[in-house]
Amino acid sequence: MASAQVTGSTVDRVRTDPPAGRSGRARDWAEIQERMLVPLYQDVYRRLEVGAATSLLGVGCRSGLALLLAAGRGAQVAGVEADAGLRELAAARGLQVSPGGRAEAVARSAHPVPRPAHSLVTVFEQPPAPALVARSAERTLPGGHLVVAAWGPAERCESAAVLEVARRHAPLDAPDPFAASGPGALESLLAAAGTRPSGSGRVACPFAYAGLDSAVRGLLSTGLFDRAEEAAGAALVAKELAEALHPYLRPDGSVRMANEFRWAVGTKPRG
């Protein structure tokens, strides 16, 4: 992971140079932010007993860490990711991730022929868009499972105060990160996509960073601040984000925020 630049005992310098390009943001995601969601991935895979009999499609798989974890359990994995920079990083991890379409490339699989449908499809994108969930259901085998995930309630997520920076500057039509956090929201998405809600879980996903600089870079790599940057400018958003993170600084200069994520699974009917 990229190291933070620490000055003194509590605060490190936030860079004021122009924001990273798309490739830089992709690398920040892979090196800083992606690991924060490992507890979510592991909880889903454990509860659904992902293993050698699983054919998994990760929709919006980013740089592929979730796919690697599933492959490590013996699953046949495939990925879809729109961002070219993230796909390049997935390729560097030995994964073949496609930009989408009817045939996704299969990575780390004993069956090299792309599958039209899968026994497990995951949508770990935040927040999950109804249209994306519906398209993902089409790629789920009858009797298979579709998983969607979202932030937990804002009052259980310390990062909610930080995400307020994005809400304050983004246009009114920007997605709300907590839109699917309410009771039954994920289950409603699954039902609308034609699956039968059949389970759910809650998992702690603390966001922990080496320092303030890495925290800002990691959070910006999520894409949740993109609309705010377009409207208010990247420099202002980065400055206010750093200020919002100060309450979560620790004496050693690290940053830690407790968060909860929710996930739900739907089963696609047979016949």
Rank of each mutant, 00 (worst) to 15 (best):
A174Y: 01
G218K: 00
G182V: 11
G94R: 11
T7K: 06
R87G: 01
L241K: 04
D12K: 00
A107W: 00
A191P: 02
A107N: 04
A82H: 08
G143C: 05
E164N: 09
Q5M: 12
E34V: 01
A82R: 13
A231N: 10
A26E: 06
A193S: 10
R168G: 07
L37Q: 11
L37G: 01
T54R: 00
L120T: 05
S181I: 12
G253Q: 01
E240Y: 09
P183C: 08
P171R: 04
Y45R: 02
P206S: 10
C205R: 04
R202W: 15
A91G: 13
R73E: 14
A228K: 05
R196V: 15
C205Y: 04
S98E: 08
S214H: 08
P177Q: 05
Y45E: 10
G271N: 07
D173G: 09
P197E: 12
R250W: 00
S188L: 13
R202M: 15
E31V: 09
T267C: 14
R25N: 10
V148G: 01
E34M: 03
L57H: 01
A161R: 15
D83P: 06
W29S: 02
A258Q: 14
R196D: 15
S221R: 05
S221C: 09
L67K: 06
M36W: 12
S63W: 03
L95S: 07
D252C: 02
D83C: 10
P127Y: 09
R87P: 02
A53W: 07
A110L: 14
A244F: 05
R13G: 07
P39Y: 02
S221Y: 02
G223S: 09
A134T: 14
S98Y: 05
Q76G: 10
R62C: 12
A4R: 00
L68V: 13
G8N: 08
A208R: 13
L163T: 02
L249A: 06
L132H: 08
E125Y: 12
C205M: 09
R27L: 15
L212N: 01
T7Q: 13
G51L: 04
R25V: 11
Q5W: 11
A84M: 08
V203N: 01
A192G: 15
D28Y: 13
